[in-house]
């Protein structure tokens, strides 16, 4: 039988090499490899072979089938185009209509996902807020020079006897007291993402923007925990090799207060034109001031906490390396811009 196999194989080779068209090749495929093709007929007769040789003959049969199969496809591909069925695979596809989520939505999703992984709970608090939550309760009494840093919009609404004037929240920190009032008994791990408003407009400022505010309150919360959280965020949001550092700063509602920097993604922290000695400024942070805890109904002798609040747009641009020369384009509705993301 071994000879028979070799003969059939050689015969097949010769005929395949002579074939002039795909249809001829198709016929040869049936003739040799089909269900009742020549090789299959031999397979059915394998029982006739003495059992000690059977294995070897079986292997030979398989090898021959494989060899014929690959020769067939080789020939099929090398036939001239005119002899093949015409098909133009270079033609472009028909796309479905593609929608787009706004850059800010994408940023908010990523930021909240990162913090949710370490147990933070996302919340949203009023954008139109009493002065108490935005300033007074955050240890910034009226007339305090620290208020100058926020170019605050005031709303024409009657002054509340306890909570004061109505403002547009210039920062998400106003959510700190709201969250303390909601939770009442720590633990608190809050991520508050909301629209904020400041009275300024130029290529790097828009009167409406977004911030995200983290607040953690529990027993024994320390600066080390703030560092741990910021490093976690830097690694998971910006990239594995990124690190953060704290520098001293001042806010009325935290003590101590910090400015947070992250290593520059462009130069890897060695220093380049885009950064300051290898570092980029992320935003403010600090340990929650005991007066603020007290204002939120939480005993500062039992609990401590930290907070940070940064711009969504700014942080996201630092991640993606997007350089948008005029930030105002984010809030235009130009499809040319919106479809890029």
């Amino acid at each position: 039988m071994r000879e028979e196999i070799i003969n059939i194989k050689n015969e097949a080779y010769a005929q395949i090499m002579d074939a002039k068209s795909t249809s001829e090749l198709e016929e040869l495929k049936i003739l040799y490899l089909g269900r009742s093709g020549k090789l299959n007929l031999l397979t059915k007769r394998i029982k006739e072979v003495p059992s000690e040789e059977r294995k070897e003959v079986g292997m030979l049969l398989n090898e021959s089938k494989n060899a014929i199969t690959s020769l067939l496809s080789e020939r099929r591909n090398s036939l001239k185009e005119s002899a093949r069925e015409w098909f133009d695979a270079t033609i472009p596809g028909i796309k479905p209509k593609i929608g787009h989520l706004h850059l800010v939505t994408q940023a908010i999703e990523e930021i909240s996902r990162t913090f949710e992984q370490i147990g933070f709970v996302r919340v949203r608090y009023p954008e139109v807020e009493w002065d108490w939550y935005a300033f007074e309760g955050l240890n910034m009494p009226s007339g305090h020079p620290a208020r100058d840093e926020w170019e605050t919009f005031f709303v024409d609404n009657p002054t509340h006897s306890k909570y004061g004037q109505t403002v547009l929240t210039p920062h998400t920190s106003s959510g700190q007291l709201r969250e303390m009032e909601r939770v009442k008994v720590p633990p608190i791990r809050m991520i508050n993402i909301a629209k904020c408003y400041r009275r300024q407009i130029d290529t790097s400022h828009v009167p409406m923007f977004h911030q995200f505010e983290g607040l953690v309150i529990d027993k024994g919360i320390s600066i080390a925990h703030l560092k741990g959280t910021l490093d976690y965020f830097a690694r998971n949001f910006f990239g594995k090799e990124r690190k953060t550092r704290l520098r001293p700063f001042h806010f009325q509602f935290t003590e101590p207060s910090f400015e947070v920097d992250v290593t520059c993604g462009v130069c890897g922290g060695r220093g380049c034109k885009l950064c300051k000695g290898g570092w980029l400024e992320l935003g403010g942070a600090g340990m929650v001031h005991p007066v603020v805890l007290k204002n939120g109904g939480i005993d500062p002798t039992v609990y401590s906490g930290f907070a940070f609040g940064w711009g969504v747009e700014r942080t996201y641009m630092m991640k993606s390396g997007l350089s948008i020369p005029d930030i105002r384009v984010l809030y235009s509705s130009d499809l040319g811009f919106l479809r890029q993301f």
Binding site: G119, P187, M190, K219, G228, T229
Partner: peptide
Amino acid sequence: EDVVEEIARIYGYRNLPSELMSGALP
């Protein structure tokens, strides 16, 4: 807390440990 800030900043924030908080989740 004001005194803590003075100690910590001169000691160097870079020299403080970095760790995630343990404890119950909200």
